[in-house]
Measured scan of single mutants.
Amino acid sequence: MKKYKITVYDEKTGEKHTIEIEMSEEELEELAKKLAEKHNVKVRIEKV
């Protein structure tokens, strides 16, 4: 498992949230996809 920083940005409201999380790359990609689809936000992932 690796550490990642996830930034979620909502273009409508301008809200931006960043968290650090430790998980596998596959789980992370699935999480990012679900966030983007369900909440209509942009998701950026960076390795820490």
Rank of each mutant, 00 (worst) to 15 (best):
M1L: 10
M1N: 07
K2H: 15
K2I: 14
K2G: 15
K2Y: 15
K3E: 03
K3P: 03
K3N: 10
K3I: 08
K3A: 08
Y4C: 02
Y4G: 00
Y4N: 00
Y4M: 01
Y4R: 00
K5A: 04
K5T: 05
K5C: 06
I6K: 00
I6M: 02
T7W: 04
T7S: 04
T7P: 00
T7R: 01
V8I: 14
V8P: 00
Y9A: 02
D10P: 00
D10A: 03
E11R: 07
E11D: 06
E11K: 12
E11S: 09
E11A: 11
E11T: 14
K12P: 03
K12I: 13
G14W: 06
G14P: 00
G14K: 07
G14Y: 04
E15F: 12
E15K: 07
E15P: 02
K16T: 14
K16F: 06
K16Y: 11
H17D: 06
H17G: 04
H17F: 15
H17N: 09
T18L: 05
T18W: 05
I19S: 06
I19Y: 15
I19D: 04
E20A: 05
I21T: 06
I21P: 00
E22D: 08
E22V: 10
E22K: 04
E22I: 08
E22M: 12
E22Y: 13
M23W: 03
M23T: 09
M23F: 03
M23Y: 03
M23L: 13
M23H: 02
S24Q: 09
S24W: 11
S24Y: 14
E25V: 08
E25L: 09
E26T: 12
E26Q: 10
E26Y: 08
E27D: 12
E27M: 07
E27W: 03
L28V: 14
L28G: 02
L28M: 12
L28A: 11
L28E: 02
E29C: 14
E29F: 12
E29A: 11
L31H: 02
L31D: 00
L31T: 04
A32Q: 12
A32F: 06
K33G: 04
K33V: 07
K34L: 12
K34C: 07
L35I: 05
L35N: 00
A36K: 11
A36D: 04
A36L: 10
E37M: 08
E37R: 06
E37I: 07
K38W: 08
K38H: 08
K38R: 11
H39W: 04
H39R: 04
N40D: 08
N40I: 04
V41F: 10
K42W: 03
K42T: 14
V43G: 01
V43Y: 03
V43R: 00
I45P: 01
I45S: 00
E46L: 02
E46Q: 02
E46T: 04
K47L: 15
K47E: 15
V48T: 03
V48P: 04
V48R: 02
